[in-house]
């Protein structure tokens, strides 16, 4: 069976891929485009490890089929900044947030999205934005602190 071709815009670059229409964006990103910073955690949109930005919004790439991701740009962790210069990444490094690190791409993408819409997130705003992101190592306290730090960095 021939597979359809799609053109997607990812990290500001147009890419052609052949895949079944129901293929989740996650596997296009990881297996075909070899951008492995976006992680597989659950396959059901339950843990947030696969979070990327689509049309500027955080989405779970493990449940978003490729044929529903054609109408806007996709940004993955690799495209968030040059040289990890995004304030969220800088704050993450300053506070040594990751433990195993596996969930952190998704956490960072969610945090970056929050701060792009809300310059002064309250604790409740942060918790609401990060609720869907599981970290098994328990880095939540440092994530919370890093988001607050990133917010102050952004204002500078």
């Amino acid at each position: 069976m021939a597979m359809p071709s799609y053109t997607i815009t990812i990290n500001n670059v147009k890419k052609n891929v052949s895949a079944d229409p129901d293929t989740p964006l996650l596997w296009i990103i990881r297996d075909l485009l070899e951008l492995t910073g976006t992680k597989f955690g659950c396959g059901k949109g339950l843990c947030g490890a696969c979070t990327v930005h689509y049309q500027g919004q955080p989405v779970r790439s493990c449940t978003l089929p490729i044929n529903a991701a054609l109408d806007g740009g996709i940004t993955t962790i690799e495209g968030l900044s040059e040289q990890q210069s995004h304030p969220v990444q800088q704050a993450w490094m300053e506070l040594d947030v990751p433990q195993c690190g596996y969930c952190q791409s998704g956490q960072i993408m969610a945090a970056a999205s929050l701060l792009s819409k809300n310059e002064n997130p309250t604790n409740d705003d942060i918790e609401a934005a990060m609720e869907g992101h599981l970290c098994r190592c328990g880095t939540y306290s440092r994530i919370r602190e890093a988001i607050q730090l990133a917010a102050t960095k952004k204002k500078k």
């Binding site: 492995t36 993955t76 968030l80 040289q83 990890q84 990751p98 596996y102 791409s105």
Partner: peptide, 23 residues
């Protein structure tokens, strides 16, 4: 001392290769 872990840059920019990322 409080020393930030090795590889922090790769842990925040997506470059870190886990086993699941091998090709």
């Amino acid at each position: 001392k409080r020393i930030p872990q090795i590889d922090l840059d790769q842990l925040v920019n997506g470059e870190m290769q886990y086993g699941i990322d091998i090709k």
